[in-house]
Amino acid sequence: MPMKPDKFLWASLLGGCRIHGNLELAKRAAEAILFEIKPENPATYVTLANIYATAGMWSEVAKVRKAMDDKRVVKKPGLSWIEIKRKVLIFLVGDKSHPKSYEIHNFLGKLSRRIKEKGYVPDTNFVLYDVEEEQKEQNLSYHSEKLAVALGIILTRAGTPIKVFKNLRTCVDCHTAIKFISKIVQRRIIVRDSNWFHSFENGSCSCGDYW
C-alpha cells in the first residue's frame, strides 16, 4: 500500500477474518489495532474472542478475556431501544423489567419455533462460553434487539414498520433471526446498530449479509 493502514482498514480486515475464519490474519490485524493504534478498544478484543470461540479455541478466548481484565478494558453492555408512542423503551439481554416482559418472552418463544420451521438454525458460534449447545441457544434467544423487535410487533398495528436501535454491532444470530421474523410477520424491520442501517424485509436484509 502507498500509505500506512489506519484503524478503520485494520478493523475492516479483522471483520473479514471473522466472516472467513482466518485465524492467523485476524490475530495480526488485532495486534496492529491493540498494540499500535487503539489499545483500549473493547470491540477489537470481543471480535478476536468471537473468532476464537467459533474455532472452539476456548483457551484463547480465556486469554483474550484475561488481557481485557489486566488492561482494565471494559466491554459496554449491549443495549437496544425502540420508540413507541413517543416513549423510548430500552432493553438489555434477557431483560425482564418491562411490564409486558412475560408477553414479550412468550411471544419470542413462539416466534422461535415458527422461524425454525422455516429453516432458521441458531448460530451459536459466537457465544463466548464453553457450555452445552442447548444453553447456547437459550443465551441467544433473548438478546436485546430481539426483545425490542418483539415488543414492536406486539404494540404496533400489522404492517407498521419497526425501528430498533442498538449501541453495539448486532450479532450474526440476531441478524439471521430477524430476517426470518420479517418474512413471517410481514413487517419491515429496521435495525440501526453501531456499524450499519439494516433494513429487513421479506426474509432479506439491505446489507446483503455483509457488514
Rank of each mutant, 00 (worst) to 15 (best):
A158N: 15
A32F: 00
L108P: 00
S59M: 10
G208Q: 05
L128Y: 04
V73C: 08
Y120F: 14
A26Y: 02
R114H: 09
V172F: 13
N125H: 14
R86W: 05
E24T: 04
K96N: 13
N139E: 15
K38R: 11
G208P: 09
T170E: 13
V185W: 01
P39A: 04
I82K: 11
E31Y: 09
A55S: 14
T124P: 02
P42C: 00
F165S: 09
R113T: 07
F197C: 05
H20K: 10
A158E: 15
E40K: 08
T44F: 03
A55V: 14
N41Q: 08
K100S: 11
W10G: 10
E134Y: 12
V93L: 07
I104E: 00
P77N: 09
G119Y: 06
H175G: 09
M3N: 05
L13F: 15
Q135S: 09
S112R: 13
L9N: 03
G203H: 02
Q135D: 10
P99Y: 08
S204K: 12
T47E: 01
M68F: 05
F200D: 00
D209P: 11
K96D: 12
T160N: 13
G21N: 06
W10F: 13
L151P: 01
T44G: 03
K179E: 11
G208A: 04
